[in-house]
């Protein structure tokens, strides 16, 4: 059998890759994908712990995370498309007008 810590370790590595992606990339769409990767990593940890503690509620949380992620993607991509109409770019640095 596989120890739970292996799953959690994998989740942590994936999460770190996601964080690095947000900091590292400048294509807004890829930054967005990195956020999805982080959510996925959290989901994996949830399912692993649900199994560890034999409690299905952990799986339901993943269900909710997936739902919220779907809603978030719909809105986020709409924002990116709207920005693209005015800026004609998906470069994150093209959206610097909001800085104070």
């Amino acid at each position: 059998m596989v120890p739970t810590s292996f799953y959690v370790f994998l989740a942590a590595l994936l999460f770190a890759i996601g964080v690095t992606g947000v900091l590292f990339r400048r294509n807004t769409l890829i930054i967005y994908m990195s956020i999805e990767l982080m959510l996925n990593a959290a989901n994996l940890a949830f399912v692993a712990f649900a199994r560890q503690f034999q409690d299905v509620a952990g799986q339901l949380f993943v269900f909710f995370v997936i739902t919220v992620a779907a809603a978030e993607v719909a809105v986020g991509l709409a924002i990116i498309v709207t920005i693209f109409h005015t800026k004609h770019s998906v470069d994150i640095d093209a959206m610097r007008e909001l800085r104070g």
Binding site: P3, S5, L13, V19, L23
Partner: peptide, 25 residues
């Protein structure tokens, strides 16, 4: 990249210390 690496090491260290006691599934 550097910060990402630092985060990876930190998370790995924490899991090594805290989560290895979880045992097998």
């Amino acid at each position: 990249l550097l910060l990402g690496l630092v985060l990876t090491v930190l998370l790995a260290a924490v899991i090594f210390i805290e989560a290895t006691g979880l045992g097998n599934i």
